[in-house]
Design a protein around this nucleic acid. Sequence first.
RNA 1: GCCGUUGUAGCUCAGUGGUAGAGCACUUCCUUGGUAAGGAAGAGGUCAAGGGUUCAAUUCCCUUUAACGGCUCCA
Length: 644
Amino acid sequence: MINITLPDGAVRQYEKGVSALDIAKSISEGLARKVLAASINGQVRDATRPINEDAFLKLLTWSDGDGKNTFWHSSAHLMAEAVETMFPGVKFWVGPPVENGFYYDMDLGDKKMSEEDLVALEKKMNELAKKNSAYIRKEIPKEEAVKYFSEKGDEYKLDLLSNLNDGEITFYTQGDFTDLCRGPHIPNTSFIKAIKLTSIAGAYWKGNEKNKMLTRVYGVTYPSQKELDEYLAMMEEAKKRDHRKLGKELGIFTMDDDVGPGLPLWMPNGTVIIEELEKLAKETELAAGYKRVVTPHIAKESMYLTSGHLPYYADSMFPPMEMDGEKYYLKAMNCPHHHKIFDAEPKSYKDLPYRLAEYGTCYRYEQSGELFGLMRVRCLHMNDAHIYCTKEQFYDEFKAVNEMYLKYFKIFGIDKYVMRLSLHSPEKLGQKYVDEPELWKETEALVRDVLIKTNTPFVEVQDEAAFYGPKIDVQIWSIIGREFTLATNQVDFAQGRRFKLEFTNQDNKAETPLIIHRAPLGTHERFIGFLLEHYAGKFPLWLAPVQVKVLPISDKFIDYAKSVSDKLKKADIRSEVDDRNEKIGKKIRDTELMRVPYMLVVGEKEMNENKVAVRRQGKGDMGVKTVDEFLTNAIEEIKDRREE
RNA sequence: GCCGUUGUAGCUCAGUGGUAGAGCACUUCCUUGGUAAGGAAGAGGUCAAGGGUUCAAUUCCCUUUAACGGCUCCA
């Protein structure tokens, strides 16, 4: 007999060789029908595998992340089985679960798969799922596995095998499909009740652009049609929040073929938001001791040779313009210009920390396939600043920048983000990174120290640093699930020396400052793109392009409406009058759809009493107030930058 | 940059080898209405661009371009 400890601490005794599924059955049949896999001593395994010794057991169902992943991985195998029936000779690479579903990469040889094939594949998968085939695990000696795939001529699986040792190779078979696979899998295909294949895409083998491009099919499956329908409905809702759609509907920005890809035109409504964000940044930076500067959009080649951006980053810059025998580049970053301002006057330790801020316009030649609405563009406006400080000052300065981030995030109610400590990769020193192993170690420790001492939660990742030093990136996700760096806070130990930046220290010796690059509000483009999705277009009052719309009940009250609106405008409130010949219901509907925070309905009663009927966007009628009362409240709400 | 899909009115989208249609928006008129769509009439398109096949191309083919879904990249 063996002892099985369940998550609630209960210990039960079973015969040796019992499976997790048997244990589930002994608890309840209903539970057994839901078990997808099992966590045995912390390892995820097939629920059907025998357990031979005392163990901690957690039965994994759809509500466990590992349960879902197992379900989707098994779904990928089911899809592969269906693909094999329709595309004989197909060779498979890998088919893992992802955030929402799964994919399988495959080499279809000369054949092509189309969207219509997906429908047929779904149908086939449904048929196969109903066969109730068990996922059968089999341990295979390496030699035999190699022989099997050699005979099939499957170079992909042979490649996988080359990294595996004898004794750790398993095959899984369901129905007529056998695959090299570590597992685990769900007990059988009948669990998969609802199937949707979502897209076909190309994907480089092993993620390397020099390799062959495989066909990748994405899909998602659920244990019930209802859950799949809910998921699809959720995706439809998400699309409505897409910043590209909202940006057009709300008149925030537009793109034009004649201007060029990745070059957004900010429309009047979007420009209001830009100006409010800059106001916030200026206030904040002034209080934090920054000085503002303005620099040109272009610079000579020589400066980018000094900075080290050329030739290594030339691919990401627009090609140079030739003038008077000189090459000029559009700036892809503001730092070199700022360094030149630092260097324009001699500096003493008394001048440090020296903080330069600019909402700098940069141009980056992003690959055409990477452009994405406002989130990835070729012309961007950076909330940039550079702080020149001594090593001793670094801790406080870096900490202050982090605190500025958190202050901003609080204003915007941003709580779904990850702080990522981005480190270098030692093996890429001299290529991707400045070859200063000691300085890397030292500065990475400095940054980590700030995060730990300030109790800031963070994750560490290798090979994501800037070429001149480690950084903290704030990662966010767009509504369709793409990951972006919203803000960044970087240490730079390299450029100071490259530009021969110096200050005179207390011993009257020249010293090179450390530089902090920071952009807590990222770029206008990405930040506003993010905010559009974050607020679903319902900007807080202080950011709303139109803050108040005055809606006269009929033409008779247009003059009164205008007098109310004028009074608001005098108090710097962005107010408009809807003087169209429409009924009030129509005016309200249109104003609601434009996400204007306040609607002031005015008719006979209001005019006679110098009042307004206040309506809050998304909330409805808030009652009648005097104009002054409304004005006072609105001014407060704006001043405090309240979210509601 | 690579693989795939798409491009018809300001927007959302029908449609066709014989040079185009709806709803919303827009203009004008009627209506003056109290909290999410009042009515009528009208105007609006080189069917992304270029080339080819054809008696005839918005429709079929090729190229280019842009957007979209991924991959790669992202100072």
